[in-house]
Design a protein around this nucleic acid. Structure first.
Lengths: 339, 339
DNA sequence: TTGTACGCGTTATCAC
DNA sequence: GTGATAACGCGTACAA
């Protein structure tokens, strides 16, 4: 693979070397228009020999697109988002796009900062997991011709594509499950107020108890989607009588904290307290599959969302819609009838 | 915030709106050179009003840099790389850079493909986890003025920056540990031939047994760094007499497969077979901390590697060197004396 | 089928 | 202090 070029080989050098005009080289590079076979091979040889690499910056300047997409999520470290990111990157890569990674840590300020940077870079589009409502971000993106698909969370902005899992129904099913097992005193541990996933999971679980007068009032403890929050909220939930016989932890980190805290308090799961959670861990990470959970199809969500985004970038973009992915339950050892 | 602009506001529009030349606007935007306070405020007002966002593509075309870095790793889905990626992205973000994510799945073909794309995008630099030797990739990157820092793996190419963990010493310590516990029949399960981490861990472990004649010859089973490989290699290791009393699984996925397979075969860990592994899982992911492992400082590695890369991009780049991070052991419940 | 001139948005250079 | 002008490398329109 050719030449001792220093990366400053331009289309003109190639043209000169091949004894043709720049436009001919351009046509060969992009494989469009008519070029005689003879010239084509001559140009290709020159490209190879000089180690020519087309300059996407210049290309983008002309064509008003960068061939780059972005992934704006709260934290790649959460295995749910890790898997989703992989799905998204796979889809983008298949289409020849590169993907920028942005961690907002649920901060609207960071979200806005990244969006500004992305607009400067003229990215063609972004997958957005909005920290809060996302209205400002989406408005900003639209103003700057950055296509947006909202992922994982619902979004009140009209005319925006959304791909997410069915938090509400899945939570309701988790509630049903606990009820059928005989639980009547339960508590919900969830994320921050305002985070749509946190809210929807609460709503779904409560809906399961709506017409069941024998169920005690259900405390809803808001915190964060972290292990630490799981520890703290669990302590709190168990210290307020009547003591719950089952806990619903609305996220993977939360549920891990929950189980750890229960064990630290000398309580057995599920003999003393049942636990249901949200989000499964990827199979190769689970040494001891244990938790009864709602399994969000993270990879599919990421891939689908990116495919939607790519479609938006295409010639006739489909009408925006909300795509809600099925979110089945997996029943394991963390649930049992109340003691 | 400002204007109903459609993203096609250029520096010239701002200049016209403020009644100044484009150069003056450019100076204000970049905050360099001399501009009178009065004009400066006028320009800033115009920028705000028009919703001006500087075009990094055009900027990069002039300045020959893109403000973008890349992360080329095998699979973001591996929590070790996830955490490293977070460290790298944090460092890049702090410096005002955006980070592209590239998953090669240990394929040299994919690695080369991404590198070509990155060269087209004129990325300023990349963190590379080479699938194999990396010589071609590094040569290519150099030819195209993409700065490279090799991460996680060692690299024979001279003059290249490397940041990695101490696979060899840590593996030796794991070997020492098993020996001191009394194990004399052991086996090693590792990744693919040629992957430097796979090789180094084997070498380190074997070194621990070098001058110990009472230790039985140690089978080295090569496979992949996956759970499935862990299942298969474990089966194989236990089916060839003399049966080992301890296994060394050279990677997180491998060790999980190992434990699962042992349990499937009705063997208890550590009563029947001890297991030591490599890579810890992040704390918020471990419901049941169990495995004795060498803990690679993934976040620090990612951050440090990116900081090295940023330094390379600076004015006086430091001389390339190999940075080897300490990799301590954590002893947990998966190790015990042989039965 | 092939080549020429110009513009994409920005910045470096050099005058004013 | 400030502004005209010429690149940066490529693609579009048009001419040949």
């Amino acid at each position: 693979m050719g030449g001792r070029s220093t990366g400053r080989v331009t289309i003109q050098h190639v043209a000169a070397h091949a004894g043709v005009g720049t436009m001919t080289v351009s046509r060969v590079v992009r494989n469009v228009g008519y070029v005689s076979e003879e010239v084509r091979t001559r140009v290709k040889a020159a490209m190879h020999e000089l180690g020519y690499v087309p300059n996407e910056l210049a290309r983008g300047l002309r064509s008003r697109q960068s061939g780059t997409l972005a992934l704006i999520l709260s934290d790649i470290t959460n295995p749910f988002f890790t898997t989703a990111a992989r799905g998204a990157e796979d889809a983008a890569s298949d289409a020849g796009y590169l993907t920028l990674l942005c961690n907002t840590d649920e901060s609207e300020v960071e979200e806005a900062r990244y969006l500004r940077l992305l607009a400067q870079k003229r990215v063609d589009g972004a997958l957005l997991v909005p920290a809060r409502s996302g209205v400002d971000s989406i408005a900003y993106a639209r103003r700057h011709e950055v296509k947006i698909v909202v992922m994982d969370r619902s979004c009140a902005v009209p005319g925006v594509d959304v791909v997410r899992c069915d938090s509400e129904s899945a939570s309701q099913e988790l509630g049903d499950l606990l009820y059928r097992l005989g639980h009547r005193r339960m508590a919900i541990l969830t994320g921050a107020h305002g985070a749509t996933t946190a809210e929807m999971r609460v709503a779904g679980f409560l809906r399961a108890m709506a017409n069941r007068p024998d169920v005690a009032p259900i405390p809803v403890l808001y915190g964060e989607f972290t292990r630490e929050s799981g520890l703290a909220l669990t302590k709190q939930a168990l210290s307020t009588p009547p003591r719950p016989t089952a806990l619903f932890a609305a996220n993977n980190f939360l549920s891990i904290g929950t189980v750890q805290q229960l064990r630290a308090m000398g309580l057995r799961v599920p003999e003393d307290v049942s636990v249901v959670g949200f989000d499964d861990l990827p199979e190769p990470l689970m040494m001891f599959p244990f938790l009864t959970v709602a399994v969000q199809p993270a990879y599919e969500m990421g891939r689908l969302a990116m495919e939607r985004l790519l479609a938006q970038l295409g010639d006739d973009p489909p009408a925006p819609r909300e795509t809600i992915l099925p979110t089945p339950l997996v029943v394991r050892a963390s649930t049992a009838p109340p003691p």
